[in-house]
Design a protein around this nucleic acid. Sequence first.
DNA 1: TTTGTTGCAAAACGTTTGCAGCCTC
DNA 2: GAGGCTGCAAACGTTTTGCAACAAA
Lengths: 172, 172
Amino acid sequence: MDIDKKFEGAKAILDAYIESHKMRHTPEREIVLKVVLNTTGHHTADEIQALTPDNYKINRATVYTTLDLFAEVGLVYCHPMLKGAALYENAYKVEPHSHYICTDCREIHDLYDTSITNVAMQAKTPRFTKERSSTYIFGVCTKCRAKKARWEKARQKLAMLSAAASELGKAK
Amino acid sequence: MDIDKKFEGAKAILDAYIESHKMRHTPEREIVLKVVLNTTGHHTADEIQALTPDNYKINRATVYTTLDLFAEVGLVYCHPMLKGAALYENAYKVEPHSHYICTDCREIHDLYDTSITNVAMQAKTPRFTKERSSTYIFGVCTKCRAKKARWEKARQKLAMLSAAASELGKAK
DNA sequence: TTTGTTGCAAAACGTTTGCAGCCTC
DNA sequence: GAGGCTGCAAACGTTTTGCAACAAA
């Protein structure tokens, strides 16, 4: 999609929210919005700050408040779930989706399976109006599984060696 | 369920893990386990520390490592996903479940709907072995919705009053 | 002119770490 | 007695806050 068109579309959503909430249009919000729209994947507030053009360095605190605003508006998804920093992800023109995360290398993958979101949004939640849902699937990727297996093998070999050494010691 | 029996059952799981990993049995791990089993709902590490008997005050760092161990073993569920502190929840003899969370008052409710977990665990995740999944549904509870509505009404009334005042000013 | 917003630095917060000493095995 | 574990305090990294200055409306 044309990036200018994308920006215009997202900006329209942001502006509508800003105006209806008697907030103000600021260049900082536009710059952060542009940066976010240009990213794919999951990024910390620091990473997004680092991506702003050098001539428009925006304060870290401002980046945080701006991203929170975007999350409120629905222009970004926010994932505060892994230890460490929260991850933000462009949501404009991006379908809601789930994520699967390797508990070993912490890599995050998108999972576009509408049935997950559908089932969650159809669930019965008494005295509660659902707005959105997030599903995280935890497990191990094949790369890390292989690494673990190699490690286990080495551990067993070591145990055998040390048992043999102990036997030798006794024999002496 | 009888609390002693519950403790014995959970302890058996913990002990098996401890022994198979050449770790050590410690009174601290037993005390934290007892505390966790006695709780319902979602608690921070600090809250769990505060619940340990006065004569066995356990260091905060130990509480953290112990809870992480329990999470690894599957004796607690850990939710590091809301801003602020991670929340821990007893998992022994508790079915996996989802949660719905009011974005206004931040209250967390359990949602026992097996179809959600089932669908998530059936999803196709290439080069990845699923182990568990967490679904969070965000929205607004009726209490907060009512509060918001009252607030909006008040805001509108104020706007009308101030418009009327402005008219009076002009007329003068 | 009003007041929402930014930048800055400092504080707050949750969590982890390094290390000495303890206790389990 | 070897080495995993705890307590302690200090360090760490992320996020929030208080305030003065700025700038949008």
